[in-house]
Design a protein around this nucleic acid. Structure first.
Length: 203
DNA sequence: CCCTGATTCGC
DNA sequence: GCGAATCAGG
């Protein structure tokens, strides 16, 4: 495939619309996102200022942030300045990587209204203190949840259970998971709590 | 380990 | 000019 006028135009259009390089490549066909990006640069429109920065409906990575773009023009202002130091420091402390144990699939449906013993319910924030912010987020996204069944879960679907396993009203969130984690962003927010103020832990 | 764009460099 | 490989970031 080559960059015909038509293809270039479509590229320009989609790029200015804020479509990602991979999306454009998919649409064009016969090219990779690398090819698209390369072309974009050669066309000199890497700075998405074609026209309308119309935020596409499904644009996961809005990038409206201004881009100062320091040019190497007057870079000799500070002769003795430190050149690099780009790595301030990673996060002070990675929060505890402890997920609520995944619930086995063999949930035995007892009578409804009876909670199966030994089956930790979906981490209900009842007693625990979770940021109301995160909770609101969860309530919000649970409306959009895919409501998957156990069998529909994949490595990339949020495995957060919703509802009572003993009833029909039970499903898994199913939204795209956050990288690594077993849950979507919202559920990660309530799942990975830095361990509440449990004072001592003798053993 | 899914994605994003940016850059390099042999072709 | 092209784009795979690679880099840097979320």
């Amino acid at each position: 495939m080559s960059w015909t006028d038509e293809r270039v135009e479509l590229l320009k259009k989609m790029w200015s619309e804020g479509q990602s390089a991979s999306q454009i490549a998919k649409e064009l066909g016969g090219v990779t996102r690398n090819a698209v990006i390369g072309k974009v640069h050669r066309l000199g429109l890497s700075n998405r200022s074609g026209a309308a920065p119309a935020p596409a409906a499904a644009k996961p990575e809005p990038k409206p942030a201004p881009k100062p773009e320091v040019k190497p023009a007057a870079a000799e202002a500070k002769p003795a300045a430190k050149p690099a130091a780009a790595k301030p420091a990673p996060k002070p402390a990675e929060t505890a990587e402890e997920a609520p144990a995944e619930r086995p699939s063999n949930v035995t449906p007892i009578r409804k209204a009876i909670i199966p013993a030994g089956q930790p319910l979906p981490p209900q924030p009842s007693a625990n203190e979770i940021s109301p912010e995160a909770l609101a987020k969860v309530n919000e996204i649970e409306k959009k949840a895919k409501k998957l069944t156990l069998l529909e879960l994949t490595e990339r679907t949020c495995k957060w259970p919703v509802g009572d396993p003993a009833t029909e009203d039970f499903w898994f969130c199913g939204l795209p998971v956050q990288q690594g984690k077993p849950y979507c962003e919202a559920h990660v927010g309530v799942a990975f709590q830095p361990m509440s103020n449990r004072r001592d832990r003798r053993r």
